[in-house]
Design a binder for these strands. Structure first.
Lengths: 192, 192
DNA sequence: TTTTGTAATTGACCACGGTCATTTTTTCCA
DNA sequence: TGGAAAAAATGACCGTGGTCAATTACAAAA
């Protein structure tokens, strides 16, 4: 029961990914067509699906990679200590998540893995989000009557709410940042 | 510039809707195929799209109707006054929203209308959710340092977070109701 | 080098949502 | 009642994601 992986495989895979990134670079995630990718990569359509379960799987990988990079960046900075500082520190992550409606929808769709075996980069980022924020909260100027973990899950919930409203015509008046700050202030530092 | 609507139109539309409801009754929302609906209704495929912009438009209508019915039911009951009571009162709405992953995803996708002109039943229900809960909160045993509207938006955010986690393998341990109650208690009655 | 089993690739094909030029039905006025 | 204009319905056709039996390339054993 061997399962040697040929060098050819890695090359083909790399070509597919590169082609996909090119297409996205030019037209955004939303506009990506599998046909375009395989043509740019110079392979047959079937080959694509031998390398990725479906189109979404490739998208999850590519978007997940970018998301991980956002987290890396955010973790470089100093730990924020107040609600507005936290909102500001998370900005790169939120900015990418709302860069395209397609991106936001896909991230939300993959935020919770439906089976343990298929936990992907995006689902892992959602866990990382909570860990990251919970870490900040431990020493931040916020309420401490409930656990940092629960508090961090709340931050996530409010961030998602704010991001959803960003794509909503009914709530254009308020900006994403303003809304998130208001939420976080009420959640993290109540009974002022 | 007349635009008479023929009786035939209404009949065809009614047949399409009835056929769709039959299909859904049997196999759920997820499994609905336009082909099946038009065949059951005895019309051509093109006719479907003369009556509904696309498949999602029909789904929004049908799911929206059910959602409105849930709200009507919830509004019949007495106003809850504590966090657990609020979670409990909202149960019929949340139950329907999480009855099928497809239903949840579609509702989320239509929760924010992208253009003022296309506000549908689901987007209206999201406004109604906030109004309903804010009304309860005015006289409930909860914090009053922030407006009932903001508080209600938070309830919505936590409910969505809880529902998302319901579909997530990583968070199966805790039940939806338990999680929501914990969130709402922390959000509505802090600094106990 | 040849053989042979398996990994990788291919492209014709399918499923399903959606379009549109054409045809059929209805309406309404002379 | 005839016939023209509007409304509705039709179904062949398209775009795009995805499948799979057949073919080709590879690498290890003979």
């Amino acid at each position: 029961m061997q399962k040697t992986v040929q060098k050819r495989t890695l090359k083909t895979r790399a070509r597919l990914i590169e082609a996909a990134e090119d297409v996205i670079e030019r037209n955004g995630y939303q506009a990506l067509r599998v046909e375009d990718v395989v043509q740019a990569a110079g392979v047959a359509k079937g080959t694509f699906f031998a390398h990725f379960r479906d189109k979404d799987a490739l998208m999850e990988m590519l978007i997940g990679e970018r998301l991980v990079a956002c987290f890396d960046q955010v973790e470089q900075g100093p730990a924020p200590r107040t609600a507005p500082e936290i909102a500001d520190a998370l900005r790169p992550i939120h900015a990418f998540m709302t860069s395209e409606r397609y991106v936001f929808d896909l991230i939300i769709r993959y935020s919770g893995a439906t089976a343990i075996t298929e936990i992907g980069p995006i689902a892992r980022c959602f866990e990382r989000y909570v860990r990251l924020v919970a870490g900040w909260l431990e020493t931040a100027k916020v309420r401490h009557d409930i656990s940092p973990d629960l508090l961090a899950e709340g931050v996530q919930a409010f961030a998602i709410q704010s991001m959803s409203l960003k794509f909503c015509a009914l709530h254009e008046a308020e900006s994403f940042s303003d809304r998130l700050e208001i939420y976080l202030d009420a959640w993290l530092t109540p009974a002022a």
